[in-house]
């Protein structure tokens, strides 16, 4: 997907002359963020965002399909110049690579019966039983913020949805991205909806996913940060987001 560079952009990109070539490591195995279509092309929200960001900084980007385990080594060996693969910003990874600001942070949200009139407050959840996946950040959040709400601890999200549909729990607190695809958009999810605000409190949910670069690539990092803000502001992000999700995956 080659893009012609508008003249204005060339002027904006200060010291860089000509079309910058960037190789971007993507995964292709994390639907709907990054996946293979029937023609064998890599598509998904990560890919669309990659193209939008590259256009924004005036670079021509080549996708390098890379296994998850090989992502950071490939970056460090120069097989690619950036990783755009929904990679969460963690202190461990930040010791090796340099992250941009987050470009993605799928929030956690409550799901309940659309007509139940629940809210994400202590009063709104009083006497309710809420299902979470055992030992996840969602579990920590519920235990920390709603200590009086009875929790159902599940081994997997599928089990949460089974019990939510059966009525054993009144609400589920799950990743909004997968909650939509695995439950709300399925027949079992009929009559259910998100309620309350998207939750991304850093104390529990960390910093979201960033673009990983080699340390020292400060110029590229600054320009990508600017590009993230730019596509947030000009509606390009929302346009891509809405192709895949009904909730904003940037997370506030």
């Amino acid at each position: 997907m080659r893009k012609f560079l508008p003249a204005a952009m060339l002027l904006c990109s200060t010291a860089i002359a000509g079309a910058e070539e960037l190789k971007v490591c993507v995964e292709g195995a994390y639907p709907p963020m990054s996946m293979m279509n029937e023609k064998g092309e890599i598509v998904g929200m990560d890919i669309d965002l990659t193209n939008a960001l590259c256009a924004e900084i005036g670079a021509s980007c080549a996708l390098v399909k890379t296994d998850w385990d090989a992502m950071i080594p490939s970056l460090m060996e120069g097989k690619c110049d950036a990783i755009i693969a929904s990679m969460s910003i963690t202190p461990e990874r930040a010791q090796i690579v340099a992250f941009t600001e987050k470009y993605l942070q799928s929030p956690n949200m409550f799901i309940g019966r659309a007509d139940a009139g629940m809210t994400d407050t202590a009063e709104g959840l009083a006497g309710k039983r809420v299902g979470v996946q055992r030992g996840t950040v969602a579990n920590d959040f519920m235990a920390g913020e709603f200590p009086d709400v009875e929790l159902g601890l599940y081994g997997s999200e599928e089990e949460i949805y089974l019990d939510l549909a059966a009525g054993r729990i009144d609400a589920a607190f799950v990743d909004a991205g997968t909650g939509e695809i695995a439950f709300l958009k399925t027949p079992a999810g009929e009559g259910f909806a998100y309620f309350g605000a998207p939750h991304i409190e850093e104390k529990y949910f960390g910093k979201g996913a960033g673009i990983a670069l080699r340390p020292g690539e400060d110029d590229l990092r600054v320009r990508l940060n600017g590009a993230i803000q730019a596509i947030r502001a000009n509606g390009k992000y929302a346009e891509i987001n809405n192709k895949y999700f009904t909730t904003d995956q940037y997370g506030g």
Partner: peptide
Amino acid sequence: SVITIQDILGAGRTLNGK
């Protein structure tokens, strides 16, 4: 512990997960 009950194993698994 597989059906959401916090028994001894459930406590252990919660600790591990946390």
